[in-house]
């Protein structure tokens, strides 16, 4: 319930909120601004906000020196591949649990959630070993599978909560209308669940894009995505602020834009439907 407030009160709220919002956003803003400065301007004292000579040079240098596009492509393949694969596996599972629930459904859902809580570091070496055994160390395939597995519980859960909102009678109607299981899922369930599936894809793409344990530990030169690309700026290149900023901006820009579309789904996806 929005209650009527005085314009003065509203102005005050607005001022405080914007100040706090900008403060929280400032590190990102500062990174983006710095990426357009020269190295000298980037470390100028006092700092320069907008009164510098804007340049795109850093972006060119970053791409040229460290082949940004290759890392970007790896990120897209790994995040995209794991998300699409995960949704393909999760849609049938979520359908089963939402529309043909049994006494065990709840236990299975909770068990799936529990696998998400397995600390990665606890199983680091076995996974590392398995990757070596199958020649998959530093391969995109291994990361696609691993990130798919760590996000699969979230994907199943999100889809499950969306599917539960679809009335079962509509699916029964399609069965009466002569649809088999395949037609029921393809022509009736999936089109109705498109918004839910889209938000699931989006959120999990973001989570996979930003994942920084497996991507750092299981990749070297070939399969390294943007997380590893940025980590390579740790030193000493990190002291070239303008280039670091350009690299960072390029790494986060795609996801910031996608993220803004997914803020509502974020709550549902990360709390497993416990907060609505």
């Amino acid at each position: 319930m929005a209650r009527a407030v005085t314009p003065r009160r509203k102005a005050l709220n607005t001022a405080i909120s914007w100040a706090v919002g900008l403060l929280i956003f400032f590190p990102i803003l500062w990174t983006i601004l710095t990426s357009f400065k020269t190295e000298a301007e980037a470390i100028a004292d006092p700092p320069l906000f907008l009164n510098f000579s804007w340049t795109l040079e850093n972006y060119a240098v970053v791409q040229e020196r460290s082949d940004y596009m290759r890392f970007l492509w790896n990120s897209v393949i790994i995040a995209g591949g794991s998300t699409v694969l995960g949704v393909m596996i999760a849609v049938p599972a979520a359908w089963s649990m939402a529309f043909v629930p049994s006494r065990r459904t709840k236990d299975i859902l909770l068990w799936m959630l529990s696998t998400k809580m397995l600390p990665a570091v606890g199983v680091l070496y076995p996974i590392y070993l398995i990757c070596i055994e199958f020649g998959l160390l530093d391969s995109r395939a291994a990361l696609v599978v691993i990130l798919m597995l760590i996000n699969l519980p979230i994907i199943v859960w999100m889809l499950y909560t969306y599917f539960r909102e679809i009335p079962g009678e509509i699916l029964e109607a399609s069965r009466m209308d002569g649809a088999g299981l395949k037609e029921e899922i393809l022509y009736v369930l999936t089109p109705m669940a498109i918004p839910g599936i889209a938000s699931t894809l989006l959120l999990n793409f973001i989570l996979a894009w930003n994942e920084a344990f497996w991507t750092l530990n299981l990749t070297a030169a070939n399969a390294a995505p943007l997380t590893a690309f940025i980590a390579s700026y740790s030193s000493p290149e990190g002291l070239f602020y303008a280039k670091l900023s350009a690299a960072s901006t390029m790494a986060i820009a795609p996801i910031l834009i996608l993220g803004w579309f997914s803020q509502k789904q974020l709550v549902r996806g990360l709390t497993f439907g416990a907060v609505k």
């Binding site: 929280i24 973001i206 940025i230 996801i255």
Partner: peptide
């Protein structure tokens, strides 16, 4: 306010 959540941890 939400933006920092989408920034990759290494960045």
């Amino acid at each position: 306010v939400i933006a920092p959540f989408f920034v990759m941890p290494t960045v």
